[in-house]
Amino acid sequence: MVGYVYEVEGFTSTHEYNVEINAKTGKIIDHESDRLDHDDKKHAIKLTGIISRGKASKIANKKTHGKSSEWTLEYSKKYKTTIWDVKSGNKEVKIKATSGKILSVTND
């Protein structure tokens, strides 16, 4: 059993990359890359001015009275902004990454 794993996804203008990293050891568990199709549009995430994963966890945990176990930082087409998607207890909490405002809470 590996324990916690970081799943990192990124892209360039031509390729999408996926890497799984053992959170304890930093060892790469798996990696892959795929060429982007011409119709794939990706939104780059600016990492300046966003709240930390820890702060996103505190916001989600306070709202759900749960414990965070999964985090995704992504661009949301629905909200047209970068969001933290946090699994807290049995809920999924979407949080605006620049302000910490809760956008939605749903059952997972």
Rank of each mutant, 00 (worst) to 15 (best):
E70G: 09
N22A: 14
A44L: 07
A56M: 04
D34I: 02
F11Y: 14
D30T: 10
H43C: 07
A44E: 09
K62F: 02
K63P: 03
Y6M: 11
T98H: 11
L73I: 15
V86I: 15
I28W: 11
S57C: 10
S104T: 15
H43M: 14
T82M: 05
S99L: 13
I102G: 02
R35K: 15
T72V: 06
D39E: 10
G66I: 04
G89T: 07
S69E: 15
G54K: 13
E20G: 04
K101G: 03
L103G: 04
G26I: 01
I50M: 04
D108Y: 05
G54I: 03
K96C: 08
Y75S: 01
R35H: 04
S57G: 14
K87G: 02
Y79Q: 08
V93Y: 00
K101T: 12
I29E: 07
I29R: 02
V105H: 06
E9A: 09
G89H: 08
D30M: 07
T81Q: 11
I29V: 13
G3C: 08
K27P: 05
Y79L: 07
T12S: 11
R53G: 02
R53L: 12
F11T: 01
Y6D: 11
K94Q: 15
W71N: 06
Y79A: 09
N22L: 07
A23S: 10
S99M: 13
K41G: 02
K41P: 00
V5P: 01
Y79K: 08
V93P: 01
M1S: 12
H31E: 14
G26Y: 07
K87A: 15
L73N: 07
R35E: 12
H15E: 15
K96V: 08
V2E: 10
Y75W: 15
A44M: 03
T72K: 13
S99E: 09
Y79I: 06
A44V: 02
I29A: 01
G3M: 08
W71I: 05
L103F: 04
G26F: 00
Y4G: 12
R35N: 06
E70H: 10
V105R: 05
S76K: 07
R35Q: 13
E32P: 00
H65R: 14
E7Y: 11
S13G: 10
W71F: 13
